[in-house]
């Protein structure tokens, strides 16, 4: 059973210092996520959802507590080790897409392979086909709609074949039709066995997941 746990958070706490003020963004959050699980992290603004996502994505380290991804603890890891985990284990999708404006769709999609030094041209074509943007491969981001940009961002997050896909408000900047298309794409990826964690305010998206983690004032609501 333990082998099926992909993400294990044990008492995750994150404290920010803003001047003299101490802000406890996460406070002793503990949970396990199974492989292939589709999970939503919900809560009001300032509840600590994005902070949790950043910790899960190895973008930041907890002040205390422990996070294990695929059995490997992130505690005490150097920046280069965290970078390697981001590169190999995690795929990130942002609310604002995070596409580089000077790069074409294909170049944006393959950007992570520049850093991982992996050859993934064939897989990039496959992903592009999967998100239905083969005909847009040479377009720049400003020539795409919001939904198309988000699909490129999702494809980019998958290019290094991550264990877990993390999405921060993936439908937050989209209209309902595009939001629905992104939801369908997540369902498809979930059916293929991918572990997905989405931070969302969108109840439709949250209700479509298998499990919801509700955060309030940095604590997990039971």
């Amino acid at each position: 059973m333990a082998d099926s746990i992909l993400v294990s958070a044990q008492g995750l706490t994150k404290v920010y210092n803003r001047g003299t003020e101490e802000v406890r963004a996460l406070d002793g959050v503990t949970f396990d996520l199974q492989r292939g699980e589709f999970t939503a992290v919900v809560g009001v603004s300032g509840a600590g959802k994005t902070t949790l996502l950043h910790l899960l994505g190895c973008m930041d380290t907890p002040t205390s507590g422990e996070l294990l991804i695929d059995g490997q603890s992130t505690r005490g890891l150097s920046d280069s080790a965290l970078t390697r985990m981001r590169r190999e284990q995690v795929g990130f999708v942002f609310q604002h897409f995070g596409l580089l404006p000077t790069l074409t769709v294909m170049e944006n999609l393959t950007l992570p392979t520049l850093f991982s030094k992996k050859e993934a041209k064939a897989y990039a074509n496959e992903l592009l086909e999967r998100v239905g943007l083969t005909h847009r491969r040479n377009h720049l981001p400003n020539q795409l709609s919001g939904g198309e940009m988000q699909r490129v961002a999702i494809a980019r997050a998958l290019i290094n074949r991550p264990q877990v896909l993390l999405a921060d408000e993936p439908t937050g900047n989209l209209d309902s039709a595009n939001g629905e298309a992104i939801l369908q794409l997540f369902h498809q990826l979930h059916r293929d066995g991918l572990t997905i964690i989405v931070v969302t305010h969108n109840p439709i998206l949250a209700n479509a997941t298998q499990r919801q983690l509700v955060l309030h004032d940095g604590r997990l609501v039971p």
Binding site: S80, T83, G98, P112, L114, S116
Partner: peptide, 16 residues
């Protein structure tokens, strides 16, 4: 800065 953050999130190291 934000683009640099995006690149870091998709696997760019400090050296990159």
């Amino acid at each position: 800065t934000r683009e640099i953050g995006v690149m870091r999130s998709v696997g760019a190291s400090m050296g990159d």
